[in-house]
Structures are given as structure tokens and as C-alpha cells.
């Protein structure tokens, strides 16, 4: 994939809302992505430094993301994590991003931008 695509560019191009605290997003270079709302599938499929695209917005996504060390979680269709989830994400250094768009559209755009699975 395009080595130059960093998280700041992804946030800008997809017009994502940043739900967690400020970070140097330009320093983060996601190496692929994984899409699922089933946590065990994410556990099995997502790699570290991947983007995780999901509809889930409850507290437990933070623990999953922290164990897998994903680059960020993109929460689709405006699903809103509560304050406890956001504060736990900040505590664990997990980036939460939000979009009103559907998962399919986000996946498609990310793929077009060069965020792909490396063979």
C-alpha cells in the first residue's frame, strides 16, 4: 500500500470525527484494515496497526482494540460511544473515530486510498 498514507490524511479525506484526545495522527501509518462487528472475529482477523471498522460502540471494543494494538477504530453510521468508553479509550491510548457513513462505503474508500491487505 501507499506508505505515505497516514491517519491524518485518512481522517481528512473521509471527514472522520475524532472522539478521543489529540495525537500526532500524521505519525500513524495503518498497514491494513479489518471489518466486523463480531468481537471474536476481530480477535482472530485484525492485525496490529490495522484500522478496525465497526458499528459497535460499546465499552468492550476498547479492550479488544488494546489487546490487538489496532491503529484506530472507525465507528460507522453515527453509532455513539458513551463517555465511559471514550474515557477508557483515552486511558488505553486507543483512537476512536466516527462517521455517519456506512461501513461498506468507508471500506471502499479506504481500499481506493490504498489501505489494503498486504499479501
Amino acid at each position: 500500500m501507499d506508505k505515505n498514507m497516514n491517519l491524518q490524511q485518512i481522517i481528512d479525506r473521509l471527514n472522520l470525527t475524532i472522539l478521543t484526545g489529540p495525537r500526532d495522527f500524521a505519525e500513524i501509518h495503518p498497514e491494513g484494515g479489518y471489518t466486523s462487528d463480531l468481537l471474536s472475529c476481530v480477535m482472530a482477523g485484525a492485525k496490529s496497526n490495522h484500522l478496525w471498522i465497526t458499528l459497535q460502540a460499546h465499552l468492550n471494543i476498547v479492550a479488544v482494540a488494546a489487546l490487538l494494538e489496532v491503529a484506530a477504530i472507525i465507528i460507522t453510521e453515527n453509532a455513539k460511544p458513551d463517555a465511559a468508553t471514550i474515557s477508557k479509550a483515552n486511558e488505553q491510548g486507543i483512537i476512536l473515530l466516527s462517521t455517519p457513513k456506512q461501513t461498506f462505503e468507508i471500506d471502499g474508500k479506504l481500499w481506493e486510498m490504498g489501505v489494503r491487505i498486504q499479501e
Binding site: D37, L38, L39, S40, C41, M43, A44, T54, Q56, H58, N60, I61
Partner: peptide, 15 residues
Amino acid sequence: EMGFGAGMGLVNIKR
């Protein structure tokens, strides 16, 4: 609904 219960837990552990 929370995304649990995929029936993959023990499969994941085994892996």
C-alpha cells in the same frame, strides 16, 4: 447485539 456470541471464542483460543 454487542458483538459477542459469534461462536468463535474457543476456536480462537485453540488457534
